[in-house]
Simulated assay, not measured.
Amino acid sequence: MKLRIPDADVLWDSLLPQRRHELTLHVHEHDLDDLHHVNNTVYLAWCEQVAREHALRLGMGTDALSALGAVPVARQHIITYHRPAMLGDLVRVRTALTLHAGVRSVRAYALDRVNPGDPEGGVRLAECQTEWVWVDPHSGRPKRAPETVSARFGFSDAVLGR
């Protein structure tokens, strides 16, 4: 069942910069499968890559999160594929943190081909949502993300004006 969270691009312009990140990639030979288009597992790897880069940009990489006592682990990935990416394509991968409450966070992703000549905004290749659960890095038990993490990712009351 698909999580009822908007895709990354639906909320993109309204989100604080701390809650969103994007990168642009070129499709290489090693990304392709036997059908000569990007393998489905590569899309998920790209989503993980943009999420990691987002966290690192905010100083919240795995080491920093471990030191704070809570790390995110994936609970569920849902990917909808629309069109294949091909060798040489330019792909924009966007992620947006759309929900952060208790021990759960949700990231939405939008993957678009942005080759020269494509329409403004690109051509949608895939969408993904990942539900993350925060856990204690030593016990593996669920644990609320520390307020420092919430604030850094733009979810604290002070940042949201509450």
Rank of each mutant, 00 (worst) to 15 (best):
L3K: 00
L3F: 00
I5R: 00
D9K: 11
W12C: 04
S14W: 02
H21A: 07
E22N: 07
L23F: 05
L23H: 10
L23P: 01
T24W: 11
T24V: 13
H26L: 11
D33R: 04
L35Q: 15
H36W: 07
V38I: 05
V42H: 10
Y43D: 09
Y43S: 00
L44I: 14
A45D: 08
W46Q: 05
C47G: 11
E48G: 12
Q49V: 10
R52G: 06
E53F: 05
E53P: 06
L56N: 09
L56M: 14
L56W: 14
R57C: 04
R57G: 15
G59E: 03
G59V: 02
G59A: 06
M60D: 00
L68M: 15
P72Q: 03
A74I: 09
A74W: 00
H77M: 03
Y81C: 03
P84G: 14
L87G: 10
G88K: 06
L90R: 15
R92F: 10
V93H: 11
R94S: 14
T98K: 12
H100Q: 12
H100P: 07
A101V: 08
G102C: 08
G102T: 06
V103D: 00
S105L: 06
V106L: 12
Y109L: 01
A110V: 02
L111A: 03
D112P: 02
P116N: 13
G121S: 05
G122H: 13
L125K: 07
A126P: 05
C128N: 15
Q129F: 08
T130P: 03
T130Y: 04
W132I: 00
W132C: 05
V133T: 10
W134P: 04
D136N: 14
P137S: 04
H138S: 12
H138G: 08
P146R: 09
S150A: 15
S150Y: 13
A151P: 03
F153W: 14
G154W: 05
G154F: 03
D157C: 04
D157M: 09
G161Q: 02
